[in-house]
Every structure is written in structure tokens, then in C-alpha cells.
Design a protein around this nucleic acid. Sequence first.
DNA 1: GGCAAGCTTTGATCTGGATCAAGTCAAAGT
DNA 2: ACTTTGACTTGATCCAGATCAAAGCTTGCC
Lengths: 252, 252
Amino acid sequence: MNQRNIISFETLRVACKNCSVGSLCLPLGLEPEDIGRLENIVKRARPLHRGDYLFRDGDRFRSLYVVKTGSVKRYAPSAEGGERVLGFHLPGEIIGLDAIDKDAHACAAKALETSALCEIPFPRLEELSTEIPSLQRQMYRLLSKEISNETEMLLLLGKKSAEERLATFVLNMSKRLQKRGLSPTDFHLSMSRHEIGNYLGLAVETVSRLFTRYQEDGLMVVDRKHIQLIDLDGLEALSNGTGLTRQQHQHN
Amino acid sequence: MNQRNIISFETLRVACKNCSVGSLCLPLGLEPEDIGRLENIVKRARPLHRGDYLFRDGDRFRSLYVVKTGSVKRYAPSAEGGERVLGFHLPGEIIGLDAIDKDAHACAAKALETSALCEIPFPRLEELSTEIPSLQRQMYRLLSKEISNETEMLLLLGKKSAEERLATFVLNMSKRLQKRGLSPTDFHLSMSRHEIGNYLGLAVETVSRLFTRYQEDGLMVVDRKHIQLIDLDGLEALSNGTGLTRQQHQHN
DNA sequence: GGCAAGCTTTGATCTGGATCAAGTCAAAGT
DNA sequence: ACTTTGACTTGATCCAGATCAAAGCTTGCC
């Protein structure tokens, strides 16, 4: 706590220019000069520890947040303590775009592990984006991309089987990690089986059984939260329903 | 065809100021003067007849569209002729926000009945919104609202039962029609049972059985595509899972 | 270390809704 | 009036995945 006071302003200031996830985030497409103006309004948020809330449902909407390191779970608490997981957020991803309209958060967000975040006060961002057309353009793109992502998820929940859902999920993680310069075939899942199941509309048991089966079929090696993908093409085939069924696989 | 040529420019020009759905659309929150500038870039699109395409998946993204009258179905065609219905659009609703990022439409849109639309060339809208902050603000809100809507749908597909889904759908239609000044309890569904089922992730047969059951339980009167809602509270209860189950209902 | 509290796996059973299979009905043409 | 066509309903059966039940594993905490 005291330590915060002795850190100089310069240290707290965000440096988007050097940020490893800058190319996935707001600065994309901005001139260096404009990135400087953006840096002036971005704040470094206090680091979160596992289980800490970034915001809760019902909170007034003030800022967008960008994950710098770690990961965040976003979920809608339902009556009777149940919850529905809406998404997992990796470094470079922006959280809060869904709250702009209602001016309040309809869901809660909490850290899955120790995480660092940037905070972007939305009124100032909105103001800045009237002055920097390329920032406005990037905002439109980010909002639109978020819609596409949700639509993708809708497709998954609406017609894919359990097998297809989990394969899609694992591949999606793989691709997102790759974009961040991490291994697409060897990674750590920061969320529990329960959370994965909840996110995909499946029971924990189903998730567990599928991981076991994928491993038996030589698609991946699973050791608790550590995943090693072996057969990306096989997973891709499963993910879009063109995969061999269990029986067919055994016969070939 | 010839008739189009003798209509004066003034007739073709869009008059957002007098539009009955203006308060649901882009002009919301704009000064009369700015609405005038918006009108200059909005075009009246050629009316569509049942089955006509507004755009197809893969089409280059050029414009947003607003339904003025009628209704439009948006869907993702899948391999082998199958399709996944992504939404139904009523007057005042904007179509195409999901295509901004990729600069191409990932889904197709076709008219469910004779429909009139406005076309808003996106590059010009983007330009105009850098000049009119309240227009930019409205765009952010609309995009954000779209994300919320999709999230809502995600919740529905992820954990609601068939019974809850259809009740939610009917109530959602009711509320949207009410906002447009139409009866919230007596309306016509322009889409088929098949399309409703597809949209909700249910089989046609399930939709049909549920409509029958709702009617038996005195919640509504269904006559082909015409729906009359009788017990809004009962439907609301069903829709969020707090409703009595069939058995409980009979015992009370 | 050792115990408690979660997670995760695995097995057995159950069920909501899909699928299959006939009809029924309404609108449009002949 | 009679066929056609496509949308809708109704009934019978089936199955993927939920739910129930019971262990194994980890991790953390005293």
C-alpha cells in the first residue's frame, strides 16, 4: 500500500508505444503522436489477484479495461448464486464495451490469476476519439469485432455438439495465445473445468470426459490445467463437424 | 422501373425528422440541424419483397441499413444449404454493425415480407460522426446495445429450457413492437415456425408443441401466425424460469 | 505432517428435446 | 371442386448430455 506512494508519476504512466499487446489494442492504426495523446488518458490499474473483482454487475460504467497480463473472467450472476460465464479475457483484450449503452455493467468481471490491467476512462476516450479519426475508426472496429465474436459464440451454442464446442474452445484459445506471441500448442488454462463447462453450456462432467477422450484419440495431452495440442488438423475437423466420429476413427 | 425516374429528388430524399422510428434509430439525441446533415447521406433503398436479399454473406460491406417498414431475417448460411438464423429485424433496427470490422458481411439478410429500408453508406457516416460528437456517441451506444443483445441471446441459448426460450422470444417481440407503437398483445409473426426454432436452437416440432401448450395453459391464443397474448405475467414468469411447471399448474 | 475443502474424474441412470413418421390444414393454381 | 405445395401439428421413439453418486487428486492451511 505504502509502496504506491513512492512510485513516481513517470512509472505509473502507461507506455502504449512499448506495450507488447499494443497491436491488439486501441493504438492499432494510430500515429505515434496520437498514441501519445492516448497514453495521457490511460491509467495503470491496481494489479488484481486471483478472485479480485474488476467490477461487479450493477456498477456504474466509467472505464474500459484492457488486460495487460493474466486473465479475467466475465460472467452474469443469476439469482440463487448461480452464474453464467460470458467470456475469458486474455492480454490485449478490452473489457466493458457492452456497458456503454446502459451506462452500467450488466455483468461482473474477476481475475482468474494475478493480472495487470490498464484503465481507460470512457468519457475521456470518447472525447479524444472525436479529435482523432483513426481512434474513432479503431473503436468502431473493436465494437464491431465484439459483435462478431458474440455471434460466433451464438452459432456454437445454437447448433454445435459438446464435442464440437470443446474443440472449438481449445482452438480458439490456441489462436488467441498465438496472436500474443505465445505457443499455440502448449499452454495453461487459467479457468476451471466448471468454468469452461459453464461457458460452453455443458456440464463439468461432460468437459472432463471430452478431455479424456481427446487425449485417448491422440488429439492432445492433458495434464490438469496444462494442455498440449498434438493434432491441430484433427481438432479443426472436430470443431467444424467434419471430424470422424469415434467409431469411424477406430475403424480407420 | 420507369416510375423511379419521374420521382423528384425531394421525394427520394429521406426525412428522418418525420420518420416514425427516428427515436429508435440514428437521429436519437441529435440537434435538428445535425439531423439535416444526416439526412443528406441517408438514401432510401429500393423496397424489398418477400425473399429478396438485402445482402449475402461474403458481400463487401458498404452500408448500414435501417428497416423502415416490414421485417428482415439475418442468418448465417452453413455448408450443405443449412442455415442458422441470427436475428429478426423490425422497423427502426439497424443491420450491418457486425460487418464493420471485417469490411465484409459474414451473414446474409433477406426480407420476410415487403419491406422498406434506408441505406447509410458507412464511410460517409464515419466521416460525419467525426464532425458531430452526438452522432458518434449514438453510434457507440448502438454498437454497445448490439453487444448486449447478443449477450442476452447467449444467456438464452446457454442455459434456458425450450419452454423458457420460446416465452422469452414471444415477450421480446411484444416489447419491441410496443416500442414501435404497435400492440404488445396482439400481433403477427412474419417468420415461420421453422425459422423461430432455428433462431432459438430448437426443432420445429418443439416450437409447435410449445405454442399448443401455451394456448392450453391460457397464456396466449395462437392462430397460425397471429398471436394474442393473454397472460403477460405468466409468460414473464415462464421466461425467467420462475414459472410453475406443467404439473404444479394443474395441481393449483 | 495431516486434515479439510475443492477440484476432477469416472460410472450409472435419467430425461428434455431431437428425430422419425404420419397426418392435417390453408392458400394458389388448374 | 381437386390437386399441389409447403407449412404446421401430433404421436412414437431415441439419444446426447444432464444429473446423481462416489471416489481420487491437489492445494492450502493450521
